[in-house]
């Protein structure tokens, strides 16, 4: 009954022949958010890319709603309800903001984006601009809106708050909490605690490609978390 939306077991993988992460296991429950924390270079993005299908798993399994998706291509995972926001190059620089948002629709209708435009009016002002001309933070917001607007069952976000102003991070947190209440699930990779603390139901801390800490949100103090992720 209460099978997790996403479950990954003993995942090992990386680029080419180089394993970056080793034997990581975790799960995302329905309507909850798992935050993956850790310093840079510890393998957080690698984990996310393996979950999204951009990097192959050398070993281990990934299951979505109980179905094995370990060897599925990213576009197939998308069709099964996984929406991914990437960390680097999160938007199509050569397309307009509007095209970025409506690329996968047959029309150019922006109805689903209206609630987001209320929170991030800057996007609405720049609909016709090329996404490549936006600032880094604005691109992250655009990517965030694109990823969330389809109400996918599972959303993977890689450092959504990077370069984003604090009040907009607040808006992002609100949206994620609202979507969680609707039964949607999230896995968010973050380097900064600011956003993570507001949205997370559980934490998973990586170091050196391995999982070093897994806990529910109430089980750990902020100080302990900070200690885990700083140098």
């Amino acid at each position: 009954m209460n099978a997790p939306v996403l479950r990954f077991e003993n995942l090992t993988g990386g680029y080419g022949s180089i394993p970056i992460i080793r034997e990581i296991t975790g799960r995302v429950e329905r309507g909850s958010c798992l935050c993956v924390l850790g310093r840079n270079g510890v393998g957080k993005s690698t984990l996310l890319k393996m979950l999204s299908g951009h990097l192959p798993a050398m070993s281990g399994q990934i299951a979505l709603n109980g179905r094995d998706i370990t060897s599925l291509a990213p576009e197939k995972r998308h069709d099964l309800g996984v929406n991914t926001g990437l960390q680097e190059r999160p938007v199509f620089d050569g397309l307009s903001v509007k095209d970025n948002l409506t690329l996968m629709q047959s029309d150019q209708d922006l109805e689903g984006c209206e609630p987001f435009f209320d929170a991030f009016p800057v996007l609405k002002d720049r609909l016709v601009q090329l996404a490549g001309t936006l600032s880094g933070g604005e691109r992250k917001i655009l990517s965030f809106v694109r990823t969330l607007k389809d109400n996918a069952p599972l959303t993977l976000l890689d450092e959504p708050s990077e370069g984003v102003q604090p009040e907009n991070i607040e808006h992002m947190a609100n949206f994620i909490c609202k979507h969680k209440a609707n039964g949607q699930s999230f896995l968010v990779v973050e380097q900064h605690l600011h956003l993570a603390e507001e949205i997370a139901d559980g934490f998973q801390v990586l170091d050196n490609g391995r999982s070093v800490l897994e806990c529910k949100v109430g089980d750990i103090t902020r100080g302990e978390l900070v200690q885990q992720i700083t140098v």
């Binding site: 999204s52 299908g53 951009h54 291509a73 576009e75 998308h78 999160p90 938007v91």
Partner: peptide
């Protein structure tokens, strides 16, 4: 423009 993202959006 961005093959990885293209795959990610389906």
């Amino acid at each position: 423009d961005n093959p990885d993202l293209a795959k990610a959006v389906g």
